[in-house]
Design a protein around this nucleic acid. Structure first.
Lengths: 156, 156
DNA sequence: GGGCGCAATGAAAGAATATGCATTCAATAT
DNA sequence: ATATTGAATGCATATTCTTTCATTGCGCCC
């Protein structure tokens, strides 16, 4: 009843190094290491470890999914909270807006803008402290810049 | 036998907006949209779309996974394989195309486009789910967008 | 038109996974 | 020391998913 932790570690390791296709296969691999449990237990283990059976070009395999899960469950920060904190300055030309943020701020801000899906914005691409926004038109760019400035607290 | 593509699109959309917990549940949701197929078909669809049933804190749900995207990359960077799976929508202005993909899809798709070296495309910049393509001219942009739409299966 | 080949699909059989219930063990309370 | 509680687990079974096999609709070629 005791070595659950050890087993979880082993599962972690096994799944990272080979394409495990079923719980029974995993069971055999664990047995080679002296860890002998039933499939039921593995089903529970895999759930606890958030390992998923994902389809591949040929067959399936178990793998980690943290990123995907976390992303979907996260509440994105609202732009009007993020911008005032992270905003540095904004500028633009043609249909393009270049928005500067503090270091590390570009990704969350861009994500927030994306999630609001402004009709004037075709898309955003964010680096570390800079976001490029592609607008639908030059006029749209004007609107977007004004809106960003206003959300940020009228500075840039 | 015809609306497989439409169904795939719908599945994509449904799975991205709600926590689908089983193929039967998905089946019901699809039926509400007038798409009536058996669970067998959905099993195949989900595999083709590389959607996985991933465990969460409470229960399970179907979703895209980074790992699934990674797996697809192994299947060779062929654009005509990647795009139908990862494509979300495409838009453009001036000489710029903004291509949206599912989360995590931008990098592989951009790499595939790069590797095909289209003469109309000066270059690409990819974030996580958005790609900016800089085209040689406005006309070139039209051609590029049409080509992308067609490769993706005529949707966006 | 008729025969072929092939993708898409459903129904049912077959796998794989999840789970309800009982048991065991260890820690803790009485 | 004994009872109590709760986590970990196995067993049997329920649930869910995958696959096989047969069928159907379509396009192609002669």
């Amino acid at each position: 009843m005791a070595n659950k932790r050890e087993r979880h570690l082993a599962i972690h390791e096994i799944v990272e190094t080979r394409a495990v296709q079923s719980q029974d296969e995993l069971r055999k691999l664990l047995r080679e290491r002296g860890l002998d449990v039933t499939q039921s237990t593995l089903s529970r283990d895999l759930h606890e470890l958030r390992l998923a059976r994902i389809p591949t070009g040929d067959g399936v395999r178990y793998a980690f999914t943290d990123a995907a899960v976390a992303t979907m469950e996260d509440d994105r920060g609202a732009l009007d909270h993020l911008l005032p904190q992270l905003f540095d300055k904004v500028d633009g030309t043609g249909e393009l807006v270049v928005l500067h943020t503090v270091t590390g701020g570009a990704q969350p801000v861009a994500a927030a803008i994306d999630s609001e899906a402004w009709p004037d914005v075709l898309g955003t691409i964010a680096g570390d402290d800079t976001i490029l926004l592609v607008c639908r038109s030059v006029e749209a760019r004007g609107r977007v810049m004004r809106r960003l400035s206003s959300l940020a607290g009228d500075r840039g």
